[in-house]
Design a protein around this nucleic acid. Structure first.
Length: 458
DNA sequence: ATCGGCTCGCGCAA
DNA sequence: TGCGCGAAGCCGAT
């Protein structure tokens, strides 16, 4: 049973007596460990109706790149074949979800629509537009968080220390294993393809060609998209990285100790709850498990909380008051270096460490977590205004990172540039009371010359 | 290597 | 109303 706190009824429509239940898959692109799909199946079994899954691919999503589409489409191909094994039709079409989903709902005589939760502006707008257009009930299920975002808190939290106790208190009840997607008793399987559906195989080549995206940001090969690969990555992490001083080594950008799971989390190829469950039950040292789970659970849920409650999550306006005030005071401070967006993008600053971080991001689609802080703070230092700094950081992060366009990315930039979820520090030029970072810290702590060498900067 | 000072505001105890 | 404390900081003193 899917916990009822995980589900929100998004409109006031009453249930139709017959017709398939449809899951509009959006943020959580996976078949296993997906509370939204499980809830849709639960409804379908209860009303003895077939189950359908819809996906709407937006071929001209603003700013989307070939790199991101490639990762997503390969994941969707795996979803198509996994759903076929379960006799659940998967219907993928191109277009704008707020137009296409209402059409699919009437075309397939859908009796109830289920979707997953997105805290981002576009995702929220799609969902509310659809909920008001269709004449059947629509349910939103938080399939992304362990503790549903609206349950964890009813307001924007100030910091990790304010949300942590709320999550810790109930974590035990939520951090469970998942039931399997198909019923245990084969006699109960009622998911048959409805006669009117006329399901055809998806022409993936045609879809790839129809994408109207930036082809200059190319797909990467070091990471394989999809649910299966995500689970393999998780196993590798738990056995080969986590127990070997993860807590110590995770900040060192020259070491390969990070989980590399964030691209999968972003596209929903794996569930955070699955990761947390497996890590918790692994026999890695407690300190390493705690360090990882703090990032995976508290920090991730805090990022969703910020975006969910603050629509200015990707701009200066979302920063806390003390930070905005302090940054404005220092907006007229003299900048020793200033660069334009293009100069940052091409990695042409005076600082080889910054250029190396930029190169890591543009070539692999994933910058080391610790370097992301230094990278963003230097953008603040080297632009004309904090507004412009945030704009450039978000632009580059969204464009090149495989985990871009995600609450974690927006919060990371806002933490670095705007003091979000942080405290005030000793006042200094440009930064004001925002926590400062410089290259001396990197040199002191790590073999940063090696990092620069790794990314081919001389 | 380690420590204190820097600084703001939330949440809780009183 | 007072107090403790917080994602990764820096810097200078010991």
């Amino acid at each position: 049973m899917v916990a009822k706190e995980r589900v929100r009824h998004m409109n006031t429509r009453s249930v139709k007596p017959s017709g398939p239940v449809a899951y509009w898959m959006s943020r959580d692109q996976r078949v296993g460990d997906n509370w939204a799909l499980l809830f849709a199946q639960e409804l379908a079994l209860k009303s003895q109706q077939p189950l359908l899954v819809f996906f709407v691919l937006t071929p001209n999503f603003p700013g989307a790149t070939w790199r991101a589409y490639d990762f997503m489409i390969k994941g969707l191909q795996e979803i198509e074949s996994r759903l076929r094994e379960l006799d659940v039709p998967f219907i993928l079409i191109l277009g704008d979800p707020s137009v296409e989903i209402p059409l699919l709902v009437s075309e397939h005589y859908v009796s109830a629509l289920v979707t997953d939760m997105s805290p981002l502006k576009m995702g929220k707008k799609w969902r509310s537009d659809i909920a008001s257009q269709i004449n059947v009930p629509m349910f939103e299920v938080d399939a992304h968080n362990i503790f549903p975002v609206w349950e964890a808190s009813s307001k924007q939290e100030f910091g990790a220390y304010t949300i942590r106790p709320k999550i810790q208190k109930v974590l035990k009840t939520y951090l469970t294993n998942f039931p399997p997607i198909s019923p245990q008793d084969p006699a109960k399987i009622v998911h048959v393809i409805p006669a009117h559906a006329g399901i055809q195989n998806i022409n993936w080549d045609e879809i790839e060609l129809s994408l109207n995206c930036n082809r200059s940001v190319k797909p990467v090969t070091w990471i394989t998209p999809g649910e299966k690969a995500a689970h393999q990555m998780l196993r590798d992490f738990i056995h080969k990285k986590l127990p070997y001083d993860y807590a110590e080594g995770r900040n060192d950008p020259t070491q390969d100790v990070l989980s590399n799971l964030s691209p999968y989390l972003h596209f929903g190829h794996i569930s955070a709850q699955r990761i947390a469950y497996e890590v918790q039950h692994s026999d890695a040292p407690q300190t390493d498990k705690e360090a990882f789970l703090e990032e995976l659970i508290i920090r991730r849920e805090l990022a969703d909380n910020y975006c969910f409650y603050n629509p200015e999550y990707d701009s200066f306006d979302g920063f806390p008051e003390w930070a905005k005030k302090s940054l404005i005071v220092h907006a007229t401070d003299v900048r020793e270096y200033t660069y334009l967006k293009e100069e940052f993008e091409e990695g042409k600053t005076h600082d080889p460490i910054w250029n190396a971080a930029q190169k890591e991001m543009t070539s692999t689609g994933k910058m080391h977590g610790y370097m992301r802080m230094y990278w963003a703070k230097k953008i603040l230092e080297w632009t004309k205004s904090p507004q412009e700094a945030m704009e450039i950081a978000v632009y580059l992060n969204d464009k090149y990172e495989l985990d871009g366009r995600d609450p974690n990315g927006y919060v990371g930039c806002a933490w670095s540039i705007g003091g979000l979820h942080d405290r005030a520090w000793f006042e200094r030029p440009i930064f004001g009371k925002i926590r400062y970072m410089n290259a001396n810290g990197l040199k002191r702590k790590f073999d940063i010359a090696k990092y620069v060498q790794m990314w081919g900067i001389s």
